[in-house]
Amino acid sequence: MSATHPVSLSVNGEQISRLVEPRETLADFLRRDLQLTGTHTGCEMGVCGACLVLMDGRPVHACLTFAVQASGAVVETVEGLSESAEIADLQRTFHERNALQCGFCTPGMLVSAHGLLTRPGVPSREEIRDALSGNYCRCTGYEAIVDAIETVARRRSAGERAARFLEEPA
């Protein structure tokens, strides 16, 4: 076993410092060391898109990055994006449209959708499908996901944002 290596990075707004084995992927680091299990691993080779997180603001595969490479980076996972309510409208619309079944692909889908919708303009259905070209979903057949993202894109261009998706404590 190789020696551990110090890493220090921002995850969901918290500064994290840990010692990790260099061979540990960012996905395993998030899931195992930080218990952020919303990031899923479906193929561990960058094909399925279940492990997408935001790194320095852009969607990347957490399975295709070693945690040591992410030292110094700013990482946001589905948990952080949920708590900050940045994707509340996406989550709400996915829920209403039933744009998920087993939910395993969903965090990656949300991260891809978020990445797409932070770019300027209102994407067409074709552009939405293109943005999801690396996100595998076995359950839905994709249409509901495309519908949900399209709806949010239109609402955002009209200036609407959902305030929260998670329930507030009573």
Binding site: T37, H95, F104, L110
Partner: peptide
């Protein structure tokens, strides 16, 4: 589905 959307699903792969 709401917990799945929030990344709070509990799959066997997550279990420790």
């Amino acid at each position: 589905a709401k917990r799945l959307l929030a990344g709070r699903g509990r799959y066997v792969t997550d279990l420790v």
